[in-house]
Amino acid sequence: MSERLRAMSDEDLGAALSSLDIEWPSTPALHTAVMARGASERPAIVHLRLSRPKRIMLIAAATVLLLAGAAVAAKIVIDLGGVVVEVTPSRPGILPTPSIAPTGEPVTLEEAAVTLGREVPVPSGLGPPDRVWADEVFAEKGDVARVTLAWHARQGLPEISNTRYGAVLMVFEGDTDLASKDLYEDTGVLQFERVDGVDYYWTTGTHLLELLTSDGVAYVRVEGNVLLWRDGLHTMRLETSLPMTEALRIAASTGTP
């Protein structure tokens, strides 16, 4: 090994790395393929105003994956980055009591933003949250934050079973798998939606949420309706008792990344 390299300071080693002439593979003509795809796929993407429920309903019917129809498949796995959804044929005999998932330490929105490293996306459709928590997990790729916002049940925002909240929004940082959802064909429904170019996954029915927290792994039985989507580098999980069209409206009102 080179004495010269070993004697280098970090700064000099960085400069040496920067000066390396790497043999990169030749860059393909991406623009041709991308623009061709953009043109061919555009009709499937409908830009709609979410304030128009009827139009949402039309889009909602566009792509539906009902578990009953997928009974042949042994397992369906959807990886959204921070959350993995697995659909399995049948639920186990024993499940935990329904509850709200562990949320971490109560914090202010400002503190949560520091933990998350960005402004916390608050859905304007729900207004300021009643509770905010933050949790940080040391994962293989480094520390990963999870921020949870909750809104008390109120008129138009019915209570999620076994909680006193009407909506709970979890924001998972990055793409480290912090949560895994086991959904069961015999009791659950998984539905895919694309609205304004954003892919949403809607689950209803009993499922098991396996969550990596700073206190270890938590297993939570969830009965509420859950909407999952990616927002930039974050995975969002909105739990409510609302129908999908309402949840989509709330999701669309979330602050942009």
């Binding site: 393909p28 991406l30 393929a33 991308v34 795809r37 304004d196 170019g197 954003v198 927002d231």
Partner: peptide
């Protein structure tokens, strides 16, 4: 890269 450019296109509003 191609998929990312397509996704970025549709994410431009954000």
């Amino acid at each position: 890269a191609q998929e990312a450019f397509v996704k970025a296109y549709y994410a431009l509003p954000r």
